[in-house]
Amino acid sequence: MNATACGAAPAIEVAGLRKSFGSVEAVSGLSFAVVRGEFFGFLGPNGAGKTTTINMLIGLARPDAGTIRVGGIDCTRNPKAAQSLIGVVPDESNLYPELTGFDNLSFCAALYGLPKAERTARARELLAAFGLEKAADRRFGGYSKGMRRKLAIAAGVIHRPEMLFLDEPTTGIDVASARQIRQFLSDIHRAGTTVFLTTHYIEEAERLCGRIAFIVSGRIVREDTVARLLDPVKGRHLVRIEWNNRAGEMCARLAAAFPELSFQPEGPGLVRVESGEPVRVGPLVRFLEEAGAEVAEARRLRPSLEDVFVQVTGLAAGALGREEEKGGHAA
């Protein structure tokens, strides 16, 4: 395992993890290790087994087979053994709607045995960190989705855990809130917290994580540092061209005219051009215009983890979600 090879003590070690629900095998033999202080990402489409894996790691589900060690403690038999070391941010908010934001945080801190003065100070500090001071004394039930997610993250870190598990923390909230959450996660990671994050946003994983595992149908299909994952696409040059009117077998015609380039249709009037050499856009646009297409846009793309994901998993990039640009304002 490359993680242990680095010499650092593993924060999480999983071997041969399996879990089925009836005839559905949700997790099929996962093995991986997360080093202390690492930001580790679990990236996969809906139904890949991300939540099932997290639930086994945090003691909410029992594996059918395999072993789990968290903070060096064997949690396979006793799922509660390492719970004092970890913080959990679930995929759906599970705070108390009838309590205020402040009372929710204070209650969560009490679950980890923090004395009253520390609970209050910590709750105030985290409410401020997320810009929720004004909502502190409002009932959680009346919070917006973004506010709920922020409070859930605050609740997950209230006891300053060594390790934080987050299940899709930015799914379904606006861009400004997501940015604020990512900044917070970066900060606590820099301060020394080990972070295990699941997501189906490729850019999020690329931006935050040091190492990523691609998970598809309960299996890890590839696991490496972001830098190394990006290696094979680093020298690639990408251009996306979009035109307005539908144009039948434009892709095939482009491929015939420019044999040195590779063309992938991405939708009606949308094609991705890829090459090992810099792509000259002018001739492509001219060719399309002459063939009767009204070119709307031709844009150079930075090779990204998305390309790696597509290569490795054979899934279309659309199998993963793209963050919706709702253009919200920071709370």
Partner: peptide, 15 residues
Amino acid sequence: KNRAFERLLVAPVPL
């Protein structure tokens, strides 16, 4: 049902 109980189950409190 509303999943608040999961918060208790992941806390380091014996069942």
